[in-house]
Design a protein around this nucleic acid. Sequence first.
DNA 1: TCGGTGACCTGATTC
DNA 2: AGAATCAGGTCACCG
Lengths: 163, 163
Amino acid sequence: MEAIRDPSGPDRAAMACHLLFQKEVTQSDVGKLNRFVIPKQHAEKHFPLRNRTSPTTSKGVLLNFIDSGGKVWRFRYSYWNSSRSYVLTRGWTRFVKEKSLRTGDIVSFHRSAGPEKQLHIKCMRRSGLSQAGPIHPVQMVRLFGVDIFEVSAEDGGGYGGGG
Amino acid sequence: MEAIRDPSGPDRAAMACHLLFQKEVTQSDVGKLNRFVIPKQHAEKHFPLRNRTSPTTSKGVLLNFIDSGGKVWRFRYSYWNSSRSYVLTRGWTRFVKEKSLRTGDIVSFHRSAGPEKQLHIKCMRRSGLSQAGPIHPVQMVRLFGVDIFEVSAEDGGGYGGGG
DNA sequence: TCGGTGACCTGATTC
DNA sequence: AGAATCAGGTCACCG
């Protein structure tokens, strides 16, 4: 397994997703802190918590993401005033465990191109030619077609599949 | 420790303060734990957090202390259930750094005798005849007159200068 | 009572 | 040089 492109052609389901952003997970993201920090520029662009009518959405929201196997993951997403950072909290640790996420792995967030605007989450082993590729924790599902490097054409967040 | 009296006579500003208590700081007090443990008997006597109307002041309070140079230091003061201890947390590390506090140094807490009841904080190098005396981090201010050994006549805590 | 979660904090680093 | 970011921490609450 040396490339993340599937030589047989792009995965059709993946093709329907725009990449929003991806992040190399840190030790803290997969450790005992039970939270995943979303870099601010991505958070504010794709998962806005504030708007002009409600500038302080302090309690956060629940977001649903679909993984490569079709399983729905519901994460609590909120803003921490103290560190001025956006985080996924409740539900995140379960995802880390089931996917066996480790430091250096890549997690990517996507939104389906169709009218549903469903959010998707994918992950793959940390890069390195000998090991790059999707993580197959339980189910063997082919994923990560060419869309992994697609530049998102979407602007101005909003949730199609949240809550 | 016997050399902390200023032989030239009591400092007038210091005279206006009652000594509440003093503590020799530990490694933990000046290390990476970012907290200063206040011995329970002193904490409960001088900085009470609980009262009959509000038995659980879990969030703690902010206390202002004036140092020998007139600078105001605001510390968060709270009770940690896990260790059953009273601690200064937020703001403490900055004090440690600015004063160059080291293990064995003495930190003392005072309350002004006037109607304002302002809290004061002072510190001095660890004892040892060759080095006892006030710490002069930046400004050279004479401090620590005879009141250092004055027994506080105040009882029953309460904050004159907090928050 | 203890693990999961929420909120808060800080320093190194970056910008 | 001051402000912002965020990785890596803390403790409190709750079931």
